[in-house]
Design a protein around this nucleic acid. Structure first.
Lengths: 218, 218
DNA sequence: GTCTATATGGCGATAGAC
DNA sequence: GTCTATCGCCATATAGAC
């Protein structure tokens, strides 16, 4: 990894500008890859949006793949941080997923990035293929653990296993995002996810989530 | 529309060869767009696989967008045919969806086509945007009707509406496809879908589907 | 109906000046 | 660290011969 992750340890000297430029490039890369995916998104477009020349960009990232890797790594730091906060018990972890869905509803760029890249990266020779395989495995384990702790309290409905519930939860989140991107006003992602979680557990996530919403208004 | 849909009405004369060429082109287009999506898939690649030159292809389809439209139209004819067969009652319609999922598991090309195109077409200026918006609306209505007829027999679980169940079903199917494309051996699409349908209805689709499978072996 | 040849332009990446 | 200039490639699409 490079110096992007800890810019606070080198704020002075010539590196300060470098770090700022790198961040600008990575943010532009997120925009471009969100809109067009990796193959159709162009380095030149990223450079243009970052206010830098084509070669100026390639000074910071040797090639297109390095740019994609760095951008994904940056995103994963943010995600990992958000995940770490909600590993209390199973129920609160699933509530956190509903919050995540609500949060995503205000970030179409991020949602589109993962929707496009994850399908594109389905091809085995895609530069981000391994990244997404391991990303799904990691997330699936996290969600599976949440369901397992619920199962120990007999709160999973009959016929549902922690594994099948975890696969179903991730599938539901992904699928809802596609429909939401196509018709944002028709799809209520957090509600639909809560509805799913309620149907595979003995917990009324829909009611609890709407209670939270009313509490926020007070 | 062109003559592709009714080749049986003009089998002789010079059109016969044209029709055959067009079909070869559309099948090649399906391959290419399945692997790379629309933007990254190239007309040249399609032409190469169809055994024709670049300009030869453009004689049949004036530009790339026309090629995509014709290919989607052709696929939709097949899909509509498959759909028409199972509009008996609500329960059999949902069983047919499980069959569709099982069928898809042997057609990674088709699955990948829709997975990639539907996320790519999320962009409002994508040539297939309108196509996918109306495709989702149409399918959602079909599934919603199935759930509505179940609701009239009190077979929907509490807290689930025909609309939310339809949205959830489509989301589940889409999301499962992405995970299945990434790790085919880990995901059992028909089982996972049956599991979802069982959790939102009072019908044990998992048991009924596995009964069907055993019957087929006999 | 299919071809070759070509116009036009975007792409990733490199070389070398400042 | 950033630039201009450039190479070589591939793209969509057109013109015109056969």
């Amino acid at each position: 990894m490079t110096d992007t992750a800890q810019p606070q340890f080198m704020p002075r000297g010539p590196y300060q500008k470098t770090a700022r430029t790198r961040v600008a490039i990575l943010e532009a890369a997120l925009e471009v890859f969100s809109e067009s995916g990796y193959h159709s998104g162009s380095i030149r477009d990223v450079a243009r949006r970052a206010g830098i020349s084509n070669s100026g960009l390639l000074h910071h990232f040797p090639d297109k793949i390095a740019l994609l890797d760095a951008m994904l790594e940056r995103r994963d730091e943010v995600d990992a941080e958000a995940m770490r906060k909600f590993t209390h018990d199973g129920k609160s972890a699933l509530h956190a997923l509903i919050h995540l869905a609500a949060d995503n509803a205000s970030k179409p760029g991020i949602v589109k990035l993962y929707a496009i890249l994850s399908t594109e990266a389905t091809a085995e020779d895609h530069p981000a293929h391994a990244h997404f395989v391991s990303r799904y495995a990691r997330t699936r384990h996290l969600v599976e653990d949440a369901f397992r702790s619920l199962a120990e309290d007999d709160q999973l409905v009959a016929g549902t296993t922690p594994e099948s519930a975890a696969i179903g939860t991730l599938a539901m989140m992904d699928g809802l995002q596609v429909q939401w991107l196509l018709e944002p006003t028709r799809i209520d992602m957090p509600y639909a996810l809560a509805s799913y979680l309620s149907s595979v557990t003995d917990i009324d996530f829909v009611a609890e989530h709407s209670l939270e919403l009313s509490a926020q208004l007070a």
